[in-house]
Computed example of a mutant assay.
Amino acid sequence: MALFLADDPVVARIQLGLLLRELRQDAERTAAQACKHLNCSPAKMSMVENGKQGIPVREVAALLDFYGADDTSAAEALRLAAIPWPKRRGRRALYQEAVPATARRYVALEAEAREIVAFDNAVINGLLQTREYARTLLAAGAPYPGSHEIDVKLDIRMRRQDKLFREEPSPLELDVIIDEACLRRRIGSAGIMRAQLEHLIQVSERENVRLQVLPFVPKNDEAFNPQTAFSILKLPERGSLVYIEDFAGGIYPEDGLLIQEYATAFERLRRAALDGDEARAFLARLVAQDG
């Protein structure tokens, strides 16, 4: 089953809500003023901006005019609003089951990002996972997994990787630091893990991917450890935001100073991590050890 996230109606609804909220805030309009302009309830405006409810194209156009949106933002908002919602109710339920509520916003933002920098300290980044490595993780994360449920989730995860390998538009730029613990933690069989490590070596050769390895013994005296995985997503015309993930889900701190702290943390990790040929040589040694 193919779920094309860029035009997925659920993802589009989330993206539209985020865009409308940002346009309202940029225009220094309150949610109450927007409600009055549309003659709608505050509950509806909240649902729309949180991506939980659709909004007719004509109402989107009215808001765009009220916010004084520029042509580029207006065109994108209207495009998102025009993506049809499926008639079959099962389609929405299927997506919502496959992507938990805490992850839907991230999937939507990731689809929009032009560059992502990430630090992973538990498992290998989802954008770099092989199909079998991802399948093993998904099966382990579900107490009573059914094969169909896992297949749907797996398809979504693999589709997220398409942006790394596309030619038009420009592929996603991925700058990732992987902790050695991720590489030594066996997920699945020895063969699955070996194939995953070989995949990392191959992907690291791409011009749009910078892959570094943070070894247990860093290449300098840097002892810094952020103790959590995080990603910094760079969005066109919207700046950067941070996604911090833990066992309970993820959060998106909006404080600019905090975002800068994570950017600084990433640079500290970079100085301690192996890069380029050093990182590939490290991965190759792990493959040989596992062979």
Rank of each mutant, 00 (worst) to 15 (best):
P171R: 02
Q96S: 10
R280V: 00
I156G: 08
Q161T: 13
G291I: 03
A43V: 09
I14A: 08
R166S: 06
L137I: 07
A118S: 15
A113I: 01
Y144E: 15
E198H: 12
P84S: 09
F4T: 12
K219P: 01
D162M: 07
L174Y: 00
G191D: 15
L109Y: 13
R131D: 06
G54L: 02
A134P: 08
R24G: 13
R210A: 14
Y243C: 14
T136F: 02
E245C: 08
E167P: 05
Y262R: 07
R194G: 10
N39H: 14
E207A: 14
L257E: 15
Q289C: 07
R194I: 01
I177T: 05
I177G: 10
F216G: 12
A284G: 11
A6W: 11
A118H: 04
A101K: 13
A284D: 15
P236V: 01
I55F: 10
P236N: 05
D70C: 08
H199K: 04
R92T: 02
P56Q: 07
V11L: 13
V123A: 14
L138R: 08
I55W: 05
R89D: 15
T136G: 03
S170Y: 07
R88E: 14
E237T: 09
E207T: 09
G126W: 01
P215L: 01
V213A: 10
Q289I: 04
L78D: 02
R135Y: 04
Y67F: 09
E261S: 14
K36P: 07
L200D: 00
L5C: 04
A229D: 15
F119L: 00
L20Y: 07
R58V: 03
A181D: 07
T264I: 11
V11R: 09
P42K: 08
Q33P: 08
L3W: 15
A139I: 12
F216E: 05
H199G: 00
Q15M: 09
R270A: 08
L233V: 01
R185D: 04
A223H: 12
E115V: 01
R285Q: 15
D255F: 02
Q202I: 05
F119K: 01
E245A: 12
A75F: 02
V99G: 10
F282Q: 01
A140N: 12
A74H: 02
S204W: 00
G141K: 06
E261T: 12
R268C: 00
A98H: 08
P171N: 05
D71I: 07
A113N: 04
R92Y: 13
T264L: 12
G276I: 00
A279V: 00
N225I: 08
G276S: 12
D65G: 07
P86W: 06
